[in-house]
Design a protein around this nucleic acid. Structure first.
Lengths: 148, 148
DNA sequence: GTTGGTGCAAAACCTTTGCACAGAA
DNA sequence: TTCTGTGCAAAGGTTTTGCACCAAC
């Protein structure tokens, strides 16, 4: 049993819920997706694995994974909520290219050494942090005039 | 004529569009709302002013205000897009209390001195930046056990 | 047999759009 | 007269929910 299965299972137990077969398939898919994903992408992934899982079940499982701290929301694409798995990933900064939609990532500490100081000044107890930087990646800066 | 009217008018001219009466009412409402707002809140505001403006017009005006750089999106509340006016406001950091939903604001530079350095390293041309910190404000830390 | 899980279809919800008309240049 | 702007109602697209049945303990 993998670490994130243990975590999910423990979280569910605490709510008198179970780590069912469906939930296990969804959990595995989430951690096999090494990209950001939306509900539809995740649904396609679990369908591709032969399971008979409905979109409703995917939608019902996402809040559970959020609650367990295994995934987090990271913005929207068009009108869809985007998620990523975070187990074992330190909190980080997203650099989103507005042209090609590439997402670079860097760690947080290198750009926000003063975060804790500010929190202390405000007397604010941080539980979650999101930073999203939009602009042009180097590739798109060099190809500004090409059509996409 | 106020400064943001001039800006909006200039922006619209550039697109062969006009600063109509409806758009003026919406613009004024946006700058009279000294809080974050969603489409519905803004709609209520302009209705309250006696105008006969439809929700569709509000929705059609929001992208124009975004384009003119007069407002910006700042996350979602439930399922609604949240906006704030930004004319004259430097980019800033939101500190959102998860319990009472209070939003504190601080300026950016004090917590991210290294942002430009990172951008240079990545060769990333920044056009927009969002930072949202969630947690508990000092008030809620001291009243954790009270009901809301 | 009681509790939670699930597929299906329908509902809910915010937002966008088609259309016909109004208004300005 | 030829644009753009607008209200209204309908459509669109994502997410949630009601319900009946299933599965596990």
């Amino acid at each position: 049993m993998q670490e994130h299965e243990r975590i999910f299972s423990a979280y569910l137990s605490g709510k008198d819920q179970k780590l069912t077969r469906n939930r296990k398939v969804i959990l595995d898919a989430v951690f096999d997706l090494h990209e950001h994903f939306d509900a539809d992408r995740l649904y396609a992934m679990v369908r591709g694995r032969g399971g008979d899982i409905s979109l409703a079940t995917v939608y019902r499982t996402l809040p559970l994974l959020l609650g367990a701290g295994l995934i987090q929301q990271c913005g929207r694409n068009d009108s869809r909520e985007i998620y990523e798995h975070i187990y074992g990933h330190p909190k980080h900064v997203h650099w989103v290219c507005e042209r090609c939609a590439a997402v670079l990532e860097t760690d947080l500490d290198s750009i926000i050494p003063n975060l804790k100081k500010s929190a202390k000044q405000l007397n604010f107890q941080i539980s979650d942090l999101k930073i999203s930087v939009k602009g042009l990646c180097w590739k798109c800066q060099n190809n500004e005039n090409e059509n996409q």
